[in-house]
Structure formats: structure tokens, C-alpha cells
Amino acid sequence: MAARTVLLDALEALNSHLPNIILVGAQAVYLHTGAGDLAQPPMTTDADLALDTSALAHEPEIAGTLMNAGFSPGKNPGSWLGRGQVAVDIMVVPWQSGTMKKDARAGRIPPHAKNTARITAGLEPALVDCAAHRLTALDPRDSRQFDLRVAGPAALLIAKAIKIEERLADADGGTSTRLKEKDALDMFRLLQAIETEDLVQGVRLHLADDQARGVTVRGLKVMETHGNTPRSPLPILAAQAGAGDVTIAPSFVALTQDLLNAVGKQQ
């Protein structure tokens, strides 16, 4: 509830930029999947927004607008802390980031401040696979609502796969403790709640786009490599996040194989 409230605070402040904002991350996942029947209820402590800078207006300047609305910059670029220190993370895909530096973390999208958005790979499909949804508060006392583009299920699935792949690589190198079981459970929620054909249609959109194609091929490869047996990392992580439900890992594998086979038949 707090995460949704702070998300609405950010959308209210950035109302004139809404055509260029796409909801991604867990809040987008739960819009598509609902609560489901898992023992672990939907939960998130933040909100994730992707900027589509292709027609982003120069005014109002985003960082200043957020600060005027009561947000403060977090430790990382693109992190904006609202009431209760709940974060809204604003991200931009590498090809729209305004920089070619491999180690750059902050997007260069002038005249917006350098710390406005964090460069994040894996969100490229969300720019082409998204649709308008009406976003409302979870607090019954809050009547605010906004029409906002929300990433499609296939785009969210690929983004989660890329995120986990990067964190698995960091963990293998002993450089990160950021691997989150919940990301794998969110993948399972999508695989379970969304019809395979609907996911395939999303993948078709990605593969038809020059910028999204490579990311989606990579994400599908992650699922093939790390989600193909009950002892693979993705099913194990999802099961661990799912309160020990022994049906999650084999179901994850079966749904992953169904999707990969369906995509393969389309190519």
C-alpha cells in the first residue's frame, strides 16, 4: 500500500511526462497477475518506472520537480525517496541513455539532471510491449488515479530474467549479495497467470524491434539455461521465495518449456 501511494505521488508530480513513463517491476507484475493462489502474497517495497526518452519533453525538469514534490535523491542515480523513505526508481535503457561508457550508471538526458535516471539493461522490450492501464490507490482513502503505460507480461518476464542473470553472475564472482528470490517468484507468477500464447505474442513484438530483439533472445536463453530442470537456479529461487511450496519448481520448469517450445515454433 505504501509503495503504491508513493508511486502515485511521483506520477502526480510528473503528470505532464506520463506519455513517456512506463511502469515496470513488481507493481506492473501484480497488475497482470493479481494475488494468485501462492502462499506468498504479492509484496513490494518500491516502484519502478522506465523513461522512454524518444519524445521526452524538456520541461518540467524531472529531478527538480520530484524534489519540489517532497522526494529526495537516494544513494544511486535514479533512486528517489518519497514519504516513509519508500523509493521510486527511474530507469532508462542503455541506447537512450546518452552515453556509451560501459561503466556509466547515470543517464545523460539533458536538460534533466544527471541523477534523474539509472541506466538499466533489460527494459528495452517494455518500450514496445506496453499498454495503457488505469492505476489506482490501494488505500481506500486515496481517490487518485492515473492512466499510465504498463509493461506487458512478456516484457516483464524478460526484464526479470536479465536482472537475475546479472545477479547470478555477480554472485558467482563473489561480488554481490543482491540476488533476490522474489524476482524468480515474480517470473513464476507471470508464467502461471498469463496464457502462453499471450506471452508469445509479446515476444513477437520484441523480436520485430531492433533494440528489443537482442535483449529478448538473451532473456529466453537465460530461461533455457537456468530454468530447464527443477534443480536449476530459477526454479530453486522461486520455490525458496514461495514458502517452500514443492509444486513451484516443477511447475516453473514445465511452464518455461511450454513457452520456449511455443516461441521456437514461431521462428
Rank of each mutant, 00 (worst) to 15 (best):
V222W: 01
N228L: 11
T225K: 03
A208W: 06
D209V: 00
D210C: 03
P230K: 12
Q211N: 14
L234C: 07
V215W: 02
Q201S: 14
T216R: 00
G219T: 02
L207S: 09
R204K: 15
R213G: 03
D210R: 14
L205T: 12
R218E: 07
T229V: 15
V222E: 00
T216Q: 05
P233L: 08
Q211V: 06
R218A: 07
H226K: 14
S232C: 10
L234K: 01
M223E: 03
H206Q: 09
M223R: 03
D209W: 10
P230C: 04
T225R: 08
R213D: 05
E224N: 14
P233S: 13
E224Q: 15
G202A: 13
E224I: 09
L205P: 08
P230R: 12
M223T: 03
V222M: 06
G214F: 07
V222F: 00
D210M: 06
R204G: 06
P230G: 04
R231K: 15
N228A: 14
V222Y: 00
S232K: 00
A208L: 10
G214N: 13
T216W: 03
T229E: 12
H206C: 01
L220S: 02
P233Q: 14
T229A: 12
V215T: 04
L205A: 14
L220V: 08
K221L: 13
V215G: 00
M223F: 07
T225M: 07
D209T: 03
L207Q: 11
K221G: 09
A208K: 10
N228Y: 13
T216V: 10
Q211D: 11
R204Q: 14
T229W: 00
E224Y: 07
L205S: 12
T216G: 01
N228V: 10
V203P: 05
R204T: 11
P233V: 01
Q201E: 15
E224V: 04
T225N: 09
P233M: 07
G214V: 10
S232L: 04
V215F: 01
P230Q: 02
H206S: 08
G214I: 11
N228S: 11
M223H: 02
V215Y: 03
V217C: 09
P230V: 08
A212G: 06
S232M: 06
T229M: 12
G219F: 00
V217I: 14
A212E: 02
S232D: 15
T229Q: 12
S232I: 03
D210H: 09
G202Q: 06
Q201W: 05
T225D: 14
G219D: 04
Q211H: 14
D210T: 11
R218V: 01
T225F: 07
L205N: 12
S232P: 06
T229K: 10
L205H: 12
N228H: 14
V215E: 02
A212N: 00
R204Y: 10
T225H: 09
L234P: 12
V222D: 01
R231F: 14
A208S: 13
R204I: 06
H226C: 09
G219K: 00
M223S: 05
Q201N: 15
L207R: 15
V215M: 05
L207F: 03
M223G: 02
A208V: 07
L220K: 02
S232V: 04
M223Q: 04
V222L: 03
P233C: 09
K221N: 13
L207A: 08
H206E: 08
P230N: 10
V217G: 09
P230F: 05
D210L: 10
V203W: 01
D209Q: 04
A208E: 12
G214C: 11
T225I: 11
